[in-house]
Design a protein around this nucleic acid. Sequence first.
DNA 1: CGCAGAATTGATACATCTCAAGCTGGGTGG
DNA 2: CCACCCAGCTTGAGATGTATCAATTCTGCG
Lengths: 251, 251
Amino acid sequence: MQNKTLSEPRLKSTDCGDCPIRHRAVCARCETDELARLEEMKYYRSFEAGQTVIWSGDRMDFVASVVTGIATLTQTMEDGRRQIVGLLLPSDFVGRPGRECAAYDVTATTDLVMCCFRKKPFEDLMLTTPHIGQRLLEMTLDELDAAREWMLLLGRKTAREKIASLIAIIARRHAALAPRRETDAVQIDLPLTREAMSEYLGLTLETVSRQISALKRDGVIVIKGKRHVTIPDFDRLLEESGDDSDGGFLV
Amino acid sequence: MQNKTLSEPRLKSTDCGDCPIRHRAVCARCETDELARLEEMKYYRSFEAGQTVIWSGDRMDFVASVVTGIATLTQTMEDGRRQIVGLLLPSDFVGRPGRECAAYDVTATTDLVMCCFRKKPFEDLMLTTPHIGQRLLEMTLDELDAAREWMLLLGRKTAREKIASLIAIIARRHAALAPRRETDAVQIDLPLTREAMSEYLGLTLETVSRQISALKRDGVIVIKGKRHVTIPDFDRLLEESGDDSDGGFLV
DNA sequence: CGCAGAATTGATACATCTCAAGCTGGGTGG
DNA sequence: CCACCCAGCTTGAGATGTATCAATTCTGCG
């Protein structure tokens, strides 16, 4: 579990120069003067694990970047069926310039810090400087690719393949942030409950639980506690996921 | 394969001023001078229904807009399972600036005309003029919303709801292009075979066929021939689709 | 220590898939 | 002009994967 030790603002500094996502977020390409203008319109907000950040339909007067922690985008049907349509990791962007209201529920699944920009000034800045729009386009295209990969998972993969794919994706993203020696077994903490996993994968939580047990029984993964997963053989996991074995990214 | 490109395009004119998608495509915001530069780098290609436009992994030396006709984006697993991850209608954009190779198969499902731009000049133009990038961002955000709506469909809807949703979406898009009197029953021609529908909806073609028959039996739709669909009561169809009944777009 | 939320496990139901057979309508050649 | 053909589609019967309903069993925490 992500510990909720800190009740104060969880950042050492609010200076963009010290920001952990400075080089990956929507501001990645900004020059010093652009950064200064962003700095004027920004403010931080913190949320505890489980809190709702935004309700679908809410009026949005800001857009934001995830600084630390993890959040989900969820869509809900009238009868309560829910589907997670996006996982927001540090540096991911929330909100849509030009849109009045939120289209999805945003929920913190771990403690979360967001860097928010007042919407109107942000939109104005986008008009006068190209770097933000360029970076946002790039990030949106990446998200679109991720969404399409998820469509393949939801439409065509078996429950077992879905679980293996989710673990592989979390492990890969984890590795991208904290690179490890090639030889070690990969270890991760699942940032989602079984229920959240089921909402992401289009399954029930019972099926998620059963398939995790099955992968464990078959030696594909090793579980310690509820959330800690060791992957002794990453290629084996990829085979189980149904994806191309050569872990190549999209070309 | 793509060598079968038809020699003569089926357009009356190759002048951007006469273009049917001039106001909706990636060039929508361009000024006359920008349009002139685009005109220099553009060329048309035509495809027959069923032809593959692009193979996943192909080197891409162009990006393009669909001018007339319909195409699909498809992702394929090693064992042959297929998922359509996008439907390309007139004005939709194909290709990703900055990317070398195609990520998906693109297939013409009807006769198709595309307006292609040589990639390098297009990328250069994007750097020097903001209007193309702005419009592309807007279009990409719309596609991302559509992809997320589809994730809900794939993950949570029943086969019957999936079919109803697909018909509703095609009808809505059709209505957007050719507005009709409110009182008339909506009529459309399905631009997809049963197999393509199954690949879009994450079903088998037999299930698609059975559910279409069921909706017909229940009077939700009226079928004439294989492709022609009449919708006597659009609200009824929306109920069956599981979506919010007030056909409101995303807010 | 004991409680509550989270997770596991079991038994059964059911939606969709799979395999198989037959239909339909538009095009073609005799 | 008709008979035939064949891709696309429909329908049927049975198999199967996942959902549903219902207990338990963990695990972390006050």
